[in-house]
Simulated assay, not measured.
Amino acid sequence: MAPAERPPQQGQQQGQQQQQQQRVFTAREVQELADAGRFVYVCDGRVFDVDADALMHPGGRAVLEAHRGKDISEVFRGAASGGASHAHSRGARALLEGYCVGALEGAAAGAGGARGPAAAAVIDESKPLLPQVAKLSPEDYQAWVDAPSTGHPIMFENEWMERMTCTQWYVIPLLWLPVAGALMWRAVSQLGLPAGQLPWLAAVGVLGWQLVEYSLHRWVFHLRPSGPETIKLHFMLHGHHHRWPMDTARLVFPPLPAGLVMALFGVLLTALVPQAYATALLAGGIAGYVAYDTTHWALHSGAPDPFVTPTLRASHMEHHYQNDKVGYGISSTLYDRLFGTLNPDLKTKVQ
């Protein structure tokens, strides 16, 4: 790879192709690239050329700027002094691996970096992924989705199906908040619900949605697949998000599957409680869903959001990059606290 070239980014072909393109850099070449404005770093004897815009570093762009062209080995392991130094997670290491372009001349490569799962020899990330993931063993598939990457992958061969998987965040409040408002109006004006009961029923609906959100995430989305068909199902539901957590076009649910879920809960609520109550509860649940999806988008995109607290952000980032058996709540940490899946050490991570 010539110094002026851009390295292949995640979401394009990697693995063997990436290894073939790696080269040996001198310290002077690394500094020249940094002086030219590239976000190049040395870590454990290897050279990384990072796409700062795609990476969306949680510490902000200033951290990337401050260390450009430097050896970040001790900073990355948390062995250096200073606020930017902390032990980075396995997920952060996996992200960094995607930007490796070679080795530093005269340096011994450290053992800290995984070279990628066996899926790299099978998966071509520049082509539709759903037909490919079924070729992986459950173990290789799980290792692959647990190594986060950057980019915008192609999931389906069918262009219409591919477009159906991508939804911009603002579609969610524009579509669903009017529905929630209409249901509240119907509960009071047409079904005879006393107006004073509407706020607390809507609040119960929001809390009910948060329980649904937590339960789906913990016990459905994180079921371990056991064969080709369950791998494909898992990949469509949640695997692609863990592999590409910063794919901003797929951070919210498309309207069609979300509508089916809402309709199902409307039927269940109507069967369990009087229709006026069911309508108000469903309205609250839909409002909770809007908060869930917009909060999820903000957590990954870095956009400001009134529901994103430092604790919630730290919990969700830990779920993605360190331990996917904690932090199942998206719009709040309430049920993580109730069910014991909030990391007790989280307080130290938000100070």
Rank of each mutant, 00 (worst) to 15 (best):
L233S: 07
I72E: 02
G102R: 08
F235N: 05
S189A: 15
G106M: 08
T26G: 09
G15W: 08
P199I: 04
T333W: 03
D124V: 02
L174H: 09
A182V: 06
A34K: 07
A276Q: 07
R68D: 01
H242D: 11
L233Y: 11
N158K: 04
V188Y: 01
Q275I: 14
A92G: 06
N158M: 04
S331C: 06
G259D: 05
D324A: 09
A79N: 08
R337K: 14
G208V: 01
W297N: 15
F253V: 13
P344I: 12
L183D: 11
A202F: 04
S226I: 09
L129N: 01
H316Y: 02
G266M: 14
T279F: 00
V350Y: 01
V212R: 03
A4G: 13
A114S: 15
I231S: 05
P228T: 07
A121R: 12
Q21E: 15
A280C: 03
V171T: 08
M161P: 02
P173L: 08
I330F: 11
R115P: 07
G259A: 13
G59R: 00
L342M: 10
T294Q: 09
Q13G: 05
T341W: 06
L216S: 10
H234V: 04
T279E: 01
G83T: 12
A79W: 05
D35F: 02
D51H: 00
P306K: 06
W160N: 05
M1Q: 04
A291P: 00
L334T: 14
A54Q: 13
V267W: 15
I154P: 00
F39E: 13
V252H: 14
F76Y: 14
L312C: 02
G205D: 02
Q132L: 02
P194M: 00
V188C: 08
T230G: 02
K135R: 04
A271G: 15
G110P: 10
A62D: 14
A120T: 09
E5H: 05
D146W: 03
L338N: 12
S85H: 03
G82Y: 07
Q10S: 15
P304H: 09
L260F: 10
Q21Y: 03
H88A: 03
V290F: 06
A108V: 13
V50Y: 11
S85L: 09
A187M: 10
P117E: 05
L198V: 04
L198E: 04
V47H: 09
M161V: 09
Q132G: 01
G69V: 05
L136T: 01
A52G: 11
N343I: 10
D247F: 11
L268G: 11
D51K: 00
Q19R: 14
G208F: 08
L251M: 15
V75P: 00
L346Y: 15
E157S: 14
R243K: 15
V261I: 15
R250M: 10
L269F: 13
R93T: 15
L33A: 08
D49S: 09
A62T: 04
W144A: 11
Y321C: 05
F25A: 08
E97A: 12
V47S: 04
R163W: 09
Y41V: 02
G329D: 13
R77V: 02
A271K: 12
G196E: 12
D53E: 11
S149D: 07
L64A: 06
M184A: 14
Q20P: 00
T165M: 10
V308N: 00
A87L: 13
D71S: 05
W176N: 00
F76C: 10
